[in-house]
Structures are given as C-alpha cells and as structure tokens.
C-alpha cells in the first residue's frame, strides 16, 4: 500500500512535501512550542506587542525597542551606549536574544519573561558581572555554546559541523528530529518508499529520553556536568529518569507517552495526564497480562495526579516555573530532591 502510494506520488506533478502524507502532524507542529523555538524579525509576536521594554541592572540600563518590525537591543551606562539589532530570538515563551557584534555572538544579558511581562537578567547569567559596557551586552558565546543554542532552537543551523545561520530555519521542522527527511522526500518523488527515516516511535523510553534530552538535557548530561539545584527542574528527561517509577524499557513511562511532540503543549490541565498515570497506578484488570507491572494505587485521589506528584517548582530567580518531572510522593516541607 505504501509502495503504491509512493508510485502514485511519483506520477503527480505537484510538489511533494512532508504534508502530502503527514498532514495531521504538519498542520499542528509549526504552532507547537518546538516549532516556535526561535523567531526572526517581523514574526516575533512578543517583541511586536512590547514596543519598548527597559530594565536596570547596576549601572547599566537595557532597552529593547521595536519599530516597523525591527528590534534593537541597547545597553547604556549613562554616558555611552551600544545598540545591536535583534535578529535571533530564542524561546517560545521566555525569550533570550542572541546578538552579534564584531563577528562574535553574545547571549543577551536580559531576557523577556511572561511572568513579569518584561525584562530581567537572563536565567543562568545572574553571576555574570560585566566589567565594562562591552561586557554588559551579555555573556560571550563560545563556539560550542552557540552551536548548542541554534541546534536546539532552529533547523539546519550547521553546515559541515560549522554554524551557518544564513541557512538556518527558525524553530524545529520535520528534518530536525527526523534525520533523513530530505532523502525520504527525494525517494518518494522517484517512487521509492524504502527511504523512511528511522522510526523514533520505536525508541525505548531510555533512548527516547536521551533523544529528547539532546535539547531538554538528558539524564546523563546533567549527571556528567554535576548540575544540581532547583534550576535543573527545567531538564525534564533528567528529572523523569530520577523517578522511582522510571523504567527504561517500559513504554508507559516515556516522554512521548505523555507528550505528542508534534502538538502544542497544553499547560494547566492536570487531568489530561491522569490516564497516563493510571496506566500503571491502577488495580490490575482481568484482561491484563500476567506479568503486567502495576504501581501502587494512590490512596488520596484518582484524578489530577500531576498536581500532587509533579509539583510546580520555580527557578531560583523566581521568573519561571516548571512541572517537576521527578514523579514522587511529595512530603510537606521536604527539600527539593536532587
């Protein structure tokens, strides 16, 4: 059937795209947070709706102004100022800007946070103490960091292993995760359906965690870097793998068991996840396999599981909060486990 479809496509005169066969995914993915992981000028709703924002840190004042679809980032010490056009805005909610000056890339010292509807110091840069106006722009990005930023917030940002922003597409598109999409399309055009990219759906939970963790930080990455503290609540694959119930070979506890990566994440609806939790934490059914593994049944409630077992944790700067993916029985007053 697939081969027949490929032959039919080969006979069509219309351009074949991912959407030709995968319309259900391609119609929603561009609207997802990952699809909007970066924005270019003219498409940046956050900046378009915040024409002028300012923030003061020590002797430096930061201003982000947007006019006619162009945004500028200015830092001044009161006597001198530096203004840089904003080209790359990274983040679908909170937004940090990657700035270019004299051929070097900088992570903006201030970022936009929806929680305060304005600017504050970029998360993780609290300790960056600029010695002069140049340094006040933001933290300089070494090559590996810049690659990491754009590899996770855009598609096709690397050419022969080198950063090539001219060719990068903002946000994540099909090719980002499904490596080999271009070859697959070319094959389909020739009626060859044997060019399917590797099926990510077949990955084990452990491998899926590592796959998503390439950007969301894998368990190994966090452990290897000795990252500890509330800030690591952002690293969901790490937190999930710390859960007592995590089993790298049980598909009921995997990133994609709860999240469809093609769809926009709906926040604030704990009930949406109940069925996922109850897939394990429910009494066995007569129809279950003999060796089916069941977790403990919650004595307190049968709904809104995540509201208790995956509490919201604020970052140390208080500007963002995340659901803690370390699923557990949370005890009152206990410290953040890490």
């Amino acid at each position: 059937m697939l081969l027949c479809g490929a032959k039919l496509l080969a006979q069509t005169t219309q351009a074949v795209t991912c959407a030709t066969c995968h319309e259900a995914q391609t119609s929603v993915q561009p609207l997802s947070q990952m699809g909007q992981a970066a924005e270019l000028p003219g498409h940046n709703a956050t900046l378009a709706t915040h024409e002028k924002m300012s923030f003061r840190s020590g002797i430096y004042t930061y201003t982000v102004e947007t006019r006619d679809g162009q945004s500028r980032y200015t830092v001044t010490d009161g006597t001198q100022s530096i203004t840089i056009p904003i080209v790359w805005a990274l983040g679908s909610q909170a937004q940090t800007w990657v700035l270019e000056r004299n051929g070097k890339l900088f992570e903006s010292q201030v970022s936009f946070y929806p929680s305060i509807n304005g600017l504050a110091i970029t998360t993780g840069d609290d300790q960056w103490k600029p010695k002069d106006l140049e340094e006040a722009i933001g933290r300089p990005l070494i090559d590996a960091e810049a690659k990491a930023c754009f590899t996770c917030h855009s598609t096709n940002s690397l050419s022969d292993g080198q950063l090539n922003l001219a060719k990068a597409t903002p946000g994540l598109t099909c090719e980002h995760c499904h490596v080999g999409t271009s070859a697959h399309l070319a094959g389909i055009m020739k009626g060859d359906a044997h060019t399917l990219p590797p099926s990510l759906g077949k990955l084990s939970p452990e491998d899926m965690s590592n796959f998503c963790g390439q950007c969301h930080r894998s368990w190994e990455t966090v452990v290897r870097n000795h990252w500890h503290g509330e800030a690591d609540v952002r690293f969901q694959p790490y937190r999930l793998a710390n859960s007592k119930c995590f089993d790298g070979s049980d598909p009921r506890i995997s990133c994609v068991a709860c999240h469809d990566p093609h769809k926009r994440l709906v926040r604030g609806s704990a009930a949406n996840y109940d069925a996922k939790c109850l897939a394990c934490h429910a009494p066995p059914l007569p129809t279950d396999a003999k060796d089916a593994v069941h977790g403990k049944v919650c004595p307190k409630a049968k709904s809104d599981c995540t509201s208790c077992h995956m509490p919201k944790v604020a970052l140390p700067n208080g500007l963002m909060q995340f659901s803690d993916h370390e699923i557990r029985v949370v005890k009152t007053g206990e410290p953040y486990p890490n």
Partner: peptide, 28 residues
C-alpha cells in the same frame, strides 16, 4: 535498562547521582 533489569538500572542511577554530587557545579 536495555536488558529490562530495572532494579539494577535504578541502583546504578543512584550511584551516579551520588558520584555527581561529589563534583564541582559548573554554570547551568
């Protein structure tokens, strides 16, 4: 994990976390 030895994987994971806590804390 690949072998489905959940308890052994968990034990090793906890060992890694213990070792990780012994190191320095780079910037996040």
């Amino acid at each position: 994990s690949k072998l489905g030895r959940k308890d052994d994987a968990r034990h090793e994971r906890l060992t890694c976390l213990d070792l990780s806590r012994g190191g320095t804390q780079p910037r996040v």
